[in-house]
Simulated scan of single mutants.
Amino acid sequence: MAAVAQNSVVTLTYDLSVTDDNQEKVLVEQAESEEPMVFLFGHSGLPEEFERQLDGKNTGDAFSFSLTPDQAYGDYDPQAVVQIPKQVFEIDGKIDDQMLEIGNYLPMADNEGNHMQAKVVEVGDEMVTMDFNHPLAGMVMHFDGKVMEVRPATAEELSHGHVHGEGGHHH
């Protein structure tokens, strides 16, 4: 039986809760057996501490751990909330009002071409307020789950840096 280690493909089910302002756990995401989380360990882009907590676990092992903002997506940064001229969102001279609905996440790119997601916070006549913080920034995250499967990654998965096949990427 393979243990979770560098270059293994890991399949998990989990419940993710965050601590709210009243210090109570609120469920925000689930990966269930019908749609588990599948990732390439050591190449996932997930927080390092998330992977460290799973390192060495075997198929069938349960896990329960928490990540602080420092171990995950950092503190909420008020300076990552910026106003962008509304005309930036024009496509063929028109603005798609459905696209600019408050709460929507939009793919954006900075001046260097780095891609990121931003949440629409406010839409004014001239400006749109966008929040570039990770949705889980500033939150303590609590994971409770189970390792469903661990297998060695294929050479192709390693060269591409992601999982192929069921639960993974399809070319």
Rank of each mutant, 00 (worst) to 15 (best):
M108Y: 03
M37H: 11
S44A: 09
K94C: 04
K57Y: 02
P78I: 11
V140F: 02
E48K: 12
E90F: 14
H115Q: 10
G93Q: 14
Y73T: 05
G56K: 02
I91M: 09
F41T: 00
D70M: 12
V123M: 11
M141Q: 15
N114T: 09
P78G: 05
V88L: 11
M99C: 07
Y105D: 07
D55W: 06
H142Y: 05
E48G: 08
L100C: 04
A72C: 02
N58C: 03
R52N: 10
H43W: 12
L54E: 00
A109C: 04
K57N: 01
I91N: 10
F39S: 00
M130P: 02
T59W: 03
V38R: 03
K86C: 05
F89Q: 07
P135A: 13
A137L: 13
I102V: 15
G93T: 14
I84M: 13
A80F: 13
Q117G: 06
G42P: 00
D96E: 06
D110W: 08
Q87D: 11
D131F: 03
M141L: 15
A62E: 12
P47T: 02
S44C: 06
M127F: 14
M99K: 14
L46Q: 08
N58P: 01
D77E: 14
M99P: 03
M127R: 11
Q71Y: 10
M37W: 09
V120H: 02
D61K: 10
Q53V: 00
D55R: 06
D55H: 12
P47Q: 05
L106M: 12
L106F: 10
M37L: 14
Q79C: 01
L54P: 01
S44Q: 03
A118C: 04
V88K: 10
L100G: 03
H43A: 10
Q53H: 08
I95T: 15
M37P: 01
Y73I: 05
L46S: 07
V128P: 02
A118F: 01
A72H: 06
A118Y: 02
E51A: 11
A62F: 07
F41N: 00
T68C: 07
G56N: 05
F50P: 01
V81R: 10
E34N: 06
M99G: 05
G103P: 10
Q87E: 10
G60N: 06
V81K: 11
Y76P: 02
I84Q: 04
K119D: 11
G56T: 03
A109V: 09
G45I: 04
V123K: 13
N58K: 08
P85R: 13
Q117Y: 01
G60S: 07
G103T: 13
V128Q: 02
S64F: 00
D125W: 02
G103D: 14
F63H: 12
Y76R: 12
V123I: 14
F50A: 04
Q53L: 00
N58Q: 08
L54C: 01
F143R: 06
E35F: 15
F50K: 03
S66Q: 11
V123R: 14
A109M: 12
Q117N: 05
K86N: 06
M108N: 01
G124C: 08
M99A: 14
E90V: 10
L54Y: 01
L106K: 12
D55F: 08
V128L: 03
G60D: 05
M108L: 15
D55E: 08
S66F: 01
F65C: 07
Q83H: 07
P47H: 04
M139S: 14
I95L: 07
Q79I: 00
E90W: 12
S66L: 05
N114C: 05
